Amino acid sequence: MARDVQITFDCADPAALSAFWAEALDYRLQDSPPGFASWDQALDAMGVPPERRNDRSAVVDPEGAGPRLFFQRVPEGKAAKNRVHLDVRAAPGLAGDARMAALEAAAERLVALGATRLERHEPAPPLGGGHLVLADPEGNEFCLD
């Protein structure tokens, strides 16, 4: 039996980081619970004070195929390289110059959203198609491949 998977990010600003990843992956912010017109309405009903409303956030795949991404506020900052990272498939089925051009276009869009470009790895046939390494606005590394 396949299991549902959620990917959790520890971060300083859940709302901002979830907005970045929603744009990066064509996801959307998770809807408020049934019976509530907004998250503010739901959080009011739950008694969550305004200063705690950015403690968590989540984004979901609108098609329901990809994993939910959950963002939780933690007091400490990122200290070292990620042990796990996301690979964002930005050039499926492409090779060579066309692949790298598609990756560069995707990187340009994500940098405009707050990502930082870190490295470019050129194609190295037969197994290496080339990829780009970026960091999200809080420094979490990810690959465009």
Rank of each mutant, 00 (worst) to 15 (best):
D4K: 10
D4N: 11
V5C: 13
V5H: 11
T8Y: 07
F9I: 11
D10A: 11
C11K: 05
C11P: 02
D13K: 02
A15V: 07
A15Q: 03
S18G: 08
S18Y: 00
A19R: 08
A22I: 02
A22E: 01
E23I: 05
L25S: 06
D26F: 03
D26V: 06
Y27F: 11
Q30R: 06
S32L: 06
P33M: 08
P34S: 09
F36Y: 05
A37L: 00
A37F: 00
D40A: 12
D40G: 06
Q41L: 02
L43G: 00
L43W: 05
D44L: 05
V48G: 05
P49G: 12
P49W: 15
P50S: 14
P50M: 13
R53S: 15
N54D: 12
D55F: 15
A58F: 03
A58T: 10
A58V: 05
E63A: 14
G64E: 10
L69G: 02
F70G: 01
V74T: 13
P75T: 12
G77N: 04
G77Y: 00
K78L: 10
K78W: 01
A80T: 03
N82V: 14
V84L: 10
H85F: 10
D87Y: 08
R89A: 06
R89E: 11
L94P: 01
L94Q: 12
A95K: 12
G96M: 10
G96L: 05
D97M: 04
D97F: 00
D97N: 06
A98C: 09
R99V: 05
M100W: 00
M100G: 00
M100H: 02
A101N: 03
A102V: 10
L103C: 11
L103S: 08
A105M: 15
R109S: 15
L113I: 04
L113V: 04
G114N: 07
A115V: 07
A115C: 10
T116K: 15
R117P: 01
L118Y: 09
E119Y: 09
R120M: 03
R120N: 06
R120E: 09
P123K: 14
P123M: 12
A124I: 10
P125K: 08
P125I: 09
P126V: 13
G128W: 05
G130I: 03
P137A: 07
G139H: 13
N140W: 09
E141G: 10
E141N: 15
F142I: 09
D145F: 06
